[in-house]
Design a protein around this nucleic acid. Sequence first.
DNA 1: ATTAGTTATGCAATCGATTACACGCGGCCG
DNA 2: CGGCCGCGTGTAATCGATTGCATAACTAAT
Lengths: 355, 355
Amino acid sequence: MERKTPTIQDVARFANVSTATVSRALSSPEKVSEGTRARVSEAVRVTGYTLNQAGRSLRQRSAKTILVALPDIRNPFFSSILDAIEREAAARGYGVLVLNLYFGHETIRRLQDFLLSNRADGLLLLDGSVDTNLLQALAGQADAIPIVVACEEIPNSGFHTVLTDNVDAAERATQHLIDLGHRRIGHLLGPDHNVVSRERFTGFARALAASGLAPVPEWSFRGNFDMESGFSAAARFLSMTERPTAIFAANDESAIGFLSGLRQHGIICPRDISVVGFDDLGVAPHYVPPLTTMRQPREALGRMAAEALIDIVEDPDALGIPLRIVLRSELVVRESTARIARGGTNKAGADTPSS
Amino acid sequence: MERKTPTIQDVARFANVSTATVSRALSSPEKVSEGTRARVSEAVRVTGYTLNQAGRSLRQRSAKTILVALPDIRNPFFSSILDAIEREAAARGYGVLVLNLYFGHETIRRLQDFLLSNRADGLLLLDGSVDTNLLQALAGQADAIPIVVACEEIPNSGFHTVLTDNVDAAERATQHLIDLGHRRIGHLLGPDHNVVSRERFTGFARALAASGLAPVPEWSFRGNFDMESGFSAAARFLSMTERPTAIFAANDESAIGFLSGLRQHGIICPRDISVVGFDDLGVAPHYVPPLTTMRQPREALGRMAAEALIDIVEDPDALGIPLRIVLRSELVVRESTARIARGGTNKAGADTPSS
DNA sequence: ATTAGTTATGCAATCGATTACACGCGGCCG
DNA sequence: CGGCCGCGTGTAATCGATTGCATAACTAAT
């Protein structure tokens, strides 16, 4: 009973044709006569044949697989993008390999390996902080490896890019706070080295400038995109005597951590402080209070990035110039932001509102 | 400048040895002399050789890749398990293919394809609701495909399984509510057909029974593991005249949706109701109120499942009998549960105003 | 010195599918 | 009638790496 998985040879034998014909019948049916086609289908059915992808990959030098490299799968922001990517890839017959990109050379080596070893046909990179030289070496060769960078921009790299309008969105988020009457506005930063962090800060500063304000260095809280860092920032906030009345947080997770920290000391949002986040995570509408936030079109972003990558994989000349798609984020107003209180309740000492 | 990626042939030519020797130098160094080994390394360095995985896979019939199939990548519970799996796999030199298992035959077909086409060496299944027949066909053949089921049990299937103690954990969660003096305890269910849902309900009922109580059918709210379903359940809760004083929710997400729905109508947790969740998501400690919940050892679960699968892939006879690992969940008490209010009969209409 | 054993290496087959090229056959056109 | 074209098919080379078997060069043992 030692049956091996059937190969194209078995099918050929059964259908009484050559392996070449079987191959053609399966991948370009129009090249084969109707009768033969039927015999081959039947033979496939009977033998239970399935393609051996390794054989095909070897010959065609393509793996029908894309590699998605991201800084943290656990982050719900990335995981929903990954979801969209997987859907799109599946629809086009591609598999998705995921690679956690902690940091350091080790993982870069692995990334390179995956690509060079013909396990993946292209790279979808969801992290802007990867060594550019290395990537360009990969992308610049004669048989260049298709790369699409999504979410985070790698400046001047010339890679195809799909991202959201971080600067502009941050500006609008901050403007929302200004529109509500806030003048003392702080920012909960993202990680230092991160491009997205910087863009959001830029948009923040730009909105302030447009209203004749300037960022107060004290009110830029260190953060890291995660809840813990928001929580720690709250401690610093609480220790200050001159506090902002509103905060633009670099993302929802840190906003939540921040609010959670404040709440433990009786600072209530939006009564005492307004907070606007970024991302519109699933929990945002169900948090207490429901979070005002910039909604990034995550599904679209993932889908379009995957689409573009596969287009290039299938026809390297498809795109003349580097692609650059910018998707617009949308402000979702909920309950974590409110018009500034009239009498300026927000005192930690004897501070007067600037109005 | 039309350089192709170098092959083992190029290395062999450069090092003045045969391809066989190069292959051996790279994968079993102890079989070649020291001098040759050095020449080969040098040649590899100079030519910039990297292995072509397709070639190796074809010959060795192994892809150095595992397939992880899950119902929803976006779900933070799964994404952190996926993270752990990826880490373990990476450490052992394996790649990870992910497959979203929406439902229906189409995806099952894809799953089968991946396995049969030699793109993956084994399957890590994070979903108990897959057609068992098909899986057993895959697993039962002469050259069986290694399968490990994690998170969700497939009863009587004989698959290797790694999971958490759902029944027992649910019992302890409910017991916690009983210990706080609650007697009128409801349950926010998971999806109907789901094994895990049922196990958690079983544990719930068991805890009640141990205290001489029984589940009140009215107080078992339909749910779906997601926030929306928790939110809807809240509406039903609000419409009832006889309400439970505590709820055991099938998971944190639905607990959050439920609390969010209640809050909109002034029902405050834990003052008016106690809620215990399941999973200990990242947001749990930062929710308002911080959630009491059963922490599942997600990282351990993912890691151990991956470990077991790869063990089997590398040595199919490694395990004599079907593996079955059960990990213990841990109750994390936070602020969403409280001792029942003294006179608190919790009747609708008799609500104390919230502010 | 002969034999046996060990070590290092090469030769060539092999994994499974694809595809360039060649061939045979029938129809069509000049 | 002869040449050309196109269709359907088969033959065999090919993709890149691994590995069973053979061989050669030494060492050790008798």
